[in-house]
Computed example of a mutant assay.
Amino acid sequence: MKSKLKLHGFNNLTKTLSFNIYDICYAETPQDQQAYVEYINKEYNAKRLTQILTEVVDIIGANILNIASQDYEPQGASVTILISEEPVTPTDSQIEESPGPLPEIILAHLDKSHITVHTYPEIHPDAGIATFRVDIDVSTCGVISPLKALNFLIHQFDSDIVTVDYRVRGFTRDVEGNKHFFDHEINS
């Protein structure tokens, strides 16, 4: 078994797992189209997407810094979660009561990276073709890897087509100062 790479200093090696998930169906009548919109709004609303991404944070071993979510009219949703590799401890100035009340959220923007999901449901007004696209990005720095969430994410969406892209950018240094452009193995 290969030993773990011992890192030194700041690690700017960014690993990003990107998904595009597509679902296509035929919704001929206005009632079918309305039922499709209701299905999308129920199954893929901001609350459910937040639950999915929160589980991803647990799977990859990250910590949540902040969550922003939004449902759109007539359909669609977006969620962004800022994450850190280590727990974030507030500074004295962040927990001091004067001159005003404590903030509800203590945010270190941007400690490690983020996880985002955006949905794009569409219905052709004449042809009855209904499509649903979900874009998901899990972007991390440090030792946490987005690949740990791969199977979980694929199984959270009822989809016809899935495209996956994995990118590694930047570099890190070992304790001897040597640059490394990859810090983990990938098993297919």
Rank of each mutant, 00 (worst) to 15 (best):
M1A: 14
L5Q: 00
K6I: 04
L7F: 03
H8A: 06
F10Q: 10
N12C: 09
T16A: 08
L17N: 03
S18A: 14
F19L: 04
N20W: 05
N20Y: 07
N20A: 11
Y22H: 12
Y22C: 08
D23H: 13
I24W: 02
I24R: 04
I24N: 06
C25N: 12
Y26Q: 04
A27S: 12
T29M: 10
P30K: 13
P30I: 09
Q31K: 15
Q31M: 09
Q31C: 09
Q34R: 11
Y36F: 15
V37I: 13
E38P: 01
Y39G: 12
N41T: 03
K42A: 07
E43C: 13
E43G: 06
E43T: 11
E43N: 14
Y44V: 00
A46T: 06
A46M: 07
K47N: 08
L49E: 02
T50M: 03
I52S: 02
T54G: 01
D58S: 15
D58V: 08
I59F: 02
A62S: 06
N66D: 14
A68E: 15
A68I: 12
A68N: 14
Q70P: 02
Q70Y: 10
D71E: 13
Y72A: 14
Y72L: 14
Y72F: 15
E73P: 02
P74Y: 08
G76Y: 01
V79H: 02
L82E: 11
S84K: 00
E85Q: 02
E85G: 00
E86L: 12
P87R: 08
T89C: 09
T91W: 07
D92H: 08
E96G: 07
E97C: 01
S98N: 13
S98P: 04
P101R: 14
P101N: 13
L102W: 05
P103Q: 14
E104D: 13
E104W: 04
E104F: 06
I105C: 11
I106Q: 05
L107N: 12
H109K: 10
L110S: 11
K112C: 15
K112A: 15
K112Y: 06
T116C: 07
H118N: 15
H118V: 14
H118K: 12
T119C: 13
I123V: 15
H124P: 06
H124R: 07
H124F: 13
D126K: 10
D126Y: 15
G128F: 06
G128P: 02
I129F: 07
I129P: 03
R133Q: 14
V134I: 15
V134C: 14
D135R: 09
D135P: 03
D135F: 10
I136Q: 05
I136A: 03
V138Q: 05
S139A: 12
G142F: 00
V143M: 02
V143P: 01
S145C: 12
S145D: 15
L147E: 01
A149E: 00
A149V: 01
L150V: 00
L153T: 00
I154F: 08
I154C: 05
Q156L: 09
Q156D: 03
Q156H: 08
F157M: 06
F157L: 05
F157I: 11
D158P: 06
D158W: 02
D160A: 10
I161W: 06
D165H: 08
R167F: 03
V168A: 00
T172Q: 03
R173M: 13
G177H: 10
G177P: 10
G177S: 10
H180Q: 07
F181L: 11
F182M: 15
F182H: 11
F182R: 12
H184T: 12
I186W: 05
N187V: 13
S188W: 09
